[in-house]
Computed example of a mutant assay.
Amino acid sequence: MSGLIFRALADESEFPLFDTINAPLPTNGVGVRSRTFKDLAADGDYRPEWVWIAQRGDEVVARASFWGRPEFDHPMSLDYFDFDTVENGAALLKAAYAALVGPGYTHPMGYERPEYNLFLPPEWKGLPEAEARIAAAEKAGLEFHVERLNLRWEPEYGLPPRSTRLTFTEAADDALLLGLLEHILEGSLDAWDRKELLSRDVKDVAAEGLQQVADMPGGRDRWRLAYDADGELVGMVMPTHNGSSATIGYIGVDSRHRGHGYAYDLLAEAMHIFADEGQPFITDNTDVGNFPMAAIFDRIGYKVTGKRMIFT
């Protein structure tokens, strides 16, 4: 690590430096992004001050790119992260986080610093590239939060039939949505929900979750409430768009109505909404440990495209 300089890029003219890294880049789907850094940077997805490199002389031996929405003052996630050695990678992260995370740092998910999203193939355990990135993140002080399944559905996989036992209406009443969300959060298997509920009131968690989905580029016109044959409100689904693809912003069943498989009906309704729009595909994810939801995605026709580990 002797002689290394850790720094952010000075301006956009230095973006090409990011791809000159002298280190083995991951294979086997480890850390793979859908688009290259060069293309993302050209589209304005990265700010020079949020892109960090470790240099020995003119040689780049480690790199880390942080991302945040254009309207954000602080980065929210760490995307690309590559290095020649675990020690150099960890040292770069320590320097970058120290510079980017100050007393006024804010994150839309409530994290104390940008989360590291490590994209992985479905069967990643034992891959040296994966193990090295996990080791570097932990050595830099990041903590494992959750492992998630990355999922995708395309029309050619087959569209499930619409529910005949539930009735759907547009979800326009925020008070009704918030009350339902509070019941959905009871017994939630979602790692983020469970973490937040340990220290925060359920009303606050529900309000924040609703706002996060409302702020997504897809808007809220597709959101639906679901009622059973007795007219009881049993759940909701929030189909939206994340800027890259159609996606389910949130889906949940009232804790008092679980055990009937309603999540399948909710998901099917969202898929029909997207299909009617002509959306070419849907991408979603769920926690590996959320076995019921993972099983529903599988049964309804989604395919697992990979996994994602999140460190905070």
Results as ranks from 00 to 15, higher is better:
residue 141 G to Q: 00
residue 146 V to E: 09
residue 172 A to S: 13
residue 101 V to A: 01
residue 92 L to R: 03
residue 146 V to G: 03
residue 140 A to T: 01
residue 176 L to H: 13
residue 179 G to N: 14
residue 101 V to I: 01
residue 165 R to Y: 08
residue 125 K to R: 14
residue 157 Y to M: 12
residue 102 G to H: 03
residue 148 R to V: 08
residue 150 N to K: 13
residue 69 R to G: 11
residue 166 L to W: 01
residue 135 A to T: 09
residue 109 M to T: 11
residue 83 F to N: 01
residue 151 L to D: 07
residue 131 E to T: 15
residue 172 A to F: 10
residue 147 E to D: 11
residue 94 K to M: 05
residue 106 T to K: 08
residue 169 T to V: 13
residue 129 E to L: 07
residue 156 E to R: 15
residue 139 K to E: 09
residue 132 A to D: 14
residue 80 Y to K: 10
residue 130 A to L: 05
residue 93 L to N: 04
residue 108 P to W: 09
residue 126 G to H: 01
residue 147 E to T: 12
residue 158 G to Q: 02
residue 63 R to D: 03
residue 182 E to K: 15
residue 151 L to I: 04
residue 89 G to R: 04
residue 69 R to H: 15
residue 130 A to M: 04
residue 153 W to M: 01
residue 121 P to Q: 00
residue 125 K to Y: 07
residue 123 E to I: 10
residue 113 R to W: 00
residue 155 P to V: 04
residue 115 E to Y: 15
residue 110 G to S: 08
residue 165 R to V: 12
residue 165 R to C: 09
residue 67 W to V: 09
residue 74 H to F: 13
residue 171 A to C: 08
residue 169 T to W: 08
residue 103 P to Q: 02
residue 117 N to Q: 14
residue 174 D to N: 15
residue 108 P to D: 10
residue 138 E to D: 03
residue 102 G to C: 01
residue 106 T to Y: 06
residue 111 Y to N: 14
residue 105 Y to C: 02
residue 89 G to F: 05
residue 161 P to M: 06
residue 144 F to N: 03
residue 182 E to C: 12
residue 179 G to D: 13
residue 95 A to L: 10
residue 68 G to W: 05
residue 160 P to G: 03
residue 88 N to G: 15
residue 135 A to V: 11
